[in-house]
Design a protein around this nucleic acid. Structure first.
Lengths: 221, 221
DNA sequence: ATATAATTCCATCAAATGATGGAAACACAT
DNA sequence: ATGTGTTTCCATCATTTGATGGAATTATAT
């Protein structure tokens, strides 16, 4: 119960938690420089100084937001792994795509912030944690890209990144793409899942030979 | 010779062109709100009012930048299409990945700005052109996702978007991913191409049956 | 009820930022 | 050389933005 983040997670109705929730959405929507502390405070319905009282500087709040969404995503992936454990690879992928996509469409700020974290610079760099996230190794193992116990090869990390980013892209780009393609939300979500299956299943399933039948008949429409 | 953009394109040494070039890089690196007109002017080595003299408001300059990179990308894709025309699908994809990746690694601001355009909101929305870019249809046809003359189905658009975004992701995320994986630039580029081939070729080549041999033996390592 | 601590808001600051008017410098034709 | 139009810079504004001190309010313990 040391950090403000832990306090916020303990009581979701606390002011800290309310601010954090809005900050996630706003930072996700407008990015770091595009979001002002006043915008967040206004949306929460409090004075700006209350925000500073709880979270300190703007960068501190942003870092907490990043930690928070990374934590949520990690938990979700662990949950998914429990569900798909033991099934054949193509089936695992299909379920994982389905679950992760549904989850991220409910919390699109996660995809926004993950991509933002990867792609954009801030004027003064507060970037600290330049390490391979642990869940990338977990996913790699779950996708049979490397054996348990072994250290994960670079190409496996790259493939996991490619997979995760493909998903994030469609979540994060929803507004733009949906408007472009004139789709309703549900239609769009279905198309996203179909497209992800189209791209990911042949690639990852093709690696381990002799299962192409599963791929063709069981998963794809 | 009406718009400032056309003037800038005519003479690459003109002040307009010099400003545009720097603006592309800065906007790409820090995003719209993360880039100030002073940052751009400072980098060019001119006074801020000179920038306003040539390009007007900040949003105007940004819009010109977007038009400029869309134009460059479109031209490159046309060039690629000429090279790959007539070859077998898997080969076309391999060459296209190679050429487009090389190009974007030379002009990473294009990937940055394309993704920025898709994902991020600005506080006041200047978004105008919410139409399917013409080159998406061209790519779809080039990838055998629809026949010439036909209107392009939604799923084909989605697949093209997925493909393009996969490439942009690795360009745009270079700093983050390379640091994470401790790779030299050349190593990283090779890994990117390999990963893209791994993901894209089975998917797009598998769609048209009976060519899996080409896929397995000719392109992938 | 009262003292103490935690929370919230009001007023305000300094710096950063988008933007402009006008003087100076420059280019160039006559 | 002179005049004309273009380009560049200096000085300056009005807002916006991150941030804080201190008063007022609320909660909590005794």
């Amino acid at each position: 119960m040391a950090t403000p983040l832990e306090k916020a997670r303990k009581d979701p109705n606390s002011m800290k938690a309310r601010i954090l929730k809005v900050a996630r959405r706003m930072y996700g929507e407008y990015g770091y420089h595009g979001t002002t502390t006043r915008m967040i405070a206004l949306e929460v319905g409090i004075d700006i100084s209350t925000l500073y009282y709880h979270w300190g500087e703007k960068t501190d709040l942003y870092e907490s937001v990043i930690l928070d969404i990374n934590n949520d995503l990690r938990n979700k992936l662990i949950e998914v792994e429990k569900v798909i454990h033991g099934r054949p690879l193509a089936r695992r992928l299909g379920i994982a795509i389905d679950m992760v996509t549904d989850y991220l469409f409910e919390c699109p700020e996660i995809s926004n912030l993950v991509l933002f974290q990867y792609f954009r610079k801030t004027r003064k760099e507060p970037n600290l944690d330049f390490h391979v996230p642990d869940f990338i190794s977990d996913i790699a193992r779950s996708m049979d890209l490397c054996k348990t116990g072994e250290s994960i090869p670079t190409s496996a990390s790259m493939r996991v990144l490619a997979m995760m980013n493909s998903i994030h892209n469609f979540i994060s780009g929803e507004n733009f793409f949906r408007e472009m393609l004139k789709l309703k939300r549900e239609e769009y979500i279905d198309h996203v899942k179909e497209t992800l299956e189209f791209m990911l299943i042949p690639a990852f399933n093709g690696g381990s030979q002799g299962q192409t039948d599963i791929n063709q008949t069981d998963i794809r429409r």
